[in-house]
Design a protein around this nucleic acid. Structure first.
Lengths: 97, 97
DNA sequence: CCATCAATTAGATACTTGTCGAAATATAGA
DNA sequence: TCTATATTTCGACAAGTATCTAATTGATGG
């Protein structure tokens, strides 16, 4: 199962998501993922962001760790998918403030 | 004028807001402000957060700088108000991803 | 098996920032 | 004016992190 309709977030996850969103580069990455209907190739992101592979890898791990993206491995390639349900759960939570 | 119905955010402000929200302490402060119908006294926050005045002052400045709160000075006291319109504008923006 | 390419990891560096104590500023009251 | 109280500013320090290069792992094709 890739994306549940409703995501429930722990306080810890809230914090991880907030931190993940706080970096402009990651925000940019998320925006790009959002423009894809489905999955998005790692190299695709790398090509449009002028960033070293190492730094990109670091950011993608942060996003994955926050639960904001899903990671699919295909041989030596990696694809990402935005977890809209998680993002929405975060927004819902902030909206309750 | 205290709070416009609609706030428009620059990319810079988006970034400032995201960073402001990324600190757990500030998140807590915003939650507290949210529970107040109107304004909230600085000392009130200080009392329920076990934080030094210096650190609190720093955080409130970050929140103000991000546009998330309004600051009203009354003599030697300071009161804060949550800018729900700005927070909402931020959420709207993230929702568009 | 070897070479190549994608992605990750390790290690180093520089910058940011959360925090505090101490000093400064500002206001109110006696 | 003197004092007490609220808040801010300053200076310093520790922790976290974004970034890079270089080395490594893992998969594919010849």
């Amino acid at each position: 199962m890739i994306a549940a309709k409703r995501a429930t977030l722990t306080d810890r996850q809230i914090s991880l998501i907030a931190k993940a969103l706080a970096d402009p580069r990651r925000y940019e990455i998320l925006q790009k993922l959002g423009r894809y209907k489905d999955l998005c190739a790692c190299s695709d992101i790398k090509n449009c962001l002028s960033i070293t592979p190492a730094t990109l890898s670091h950011h993608m791990k942060e996003l994955e760790n926050a639960g904001l993206i899903d990671v699919q491995r295909e041989g030596k390639f990696v694809n990402y998918t935005l977890r809209r349900d998680v993002l929405q759960a975060y927004l819902d939570r902030l909206g309750k403030i």
